[in-house]
Amino acid sequence: MQIDWAALGSVFGVSLVVTVALVGLFTLGIAGLSHRDRAAAQGRPAALAVTGAYTCFATCAAAVAYGISLIMA
C-alpha cells in the first residue's frame, strides 16, 4: 500500500494558500468599493480605491477562469 503523502501535502498547501489569497483579495476589493461609497457620500474622489478594487476582482475572475479550464481539462 502506498499513500501519496506528497500529493496530499501539496493539495493541503495549495488549497490553503489559494483560498486565503483569493478571499483576501476579494475582501480587499470589497473594502475598496465601500471606501468609494463612503468617499462619494462625502464628495471626495476615490480613484485609487476603485482601481485597486477592480484589479482585485479581475484577479479573482482570472482565478475562476483558471478553475473552469481545470474542470474542462
Binding site: 470589497i30 473594502a31 465601500s34
Partner: peptide, 19 residues
C-alpha cells in the same frame, strides 16, 4: 477557517451595499 478570520479582519471597513 483562516479565510474567514482574514475576511473579517480585513473587512472591518467593508460595509454597506457594496460589501
Amino acid at each position: 477557517m483562516l479565510a474567514t478570520r482574514l475576511t473579517y479582519r480585513m473587512g472591518k471597513k467593508a460595509d454597506g451595499e457594496a460589501a
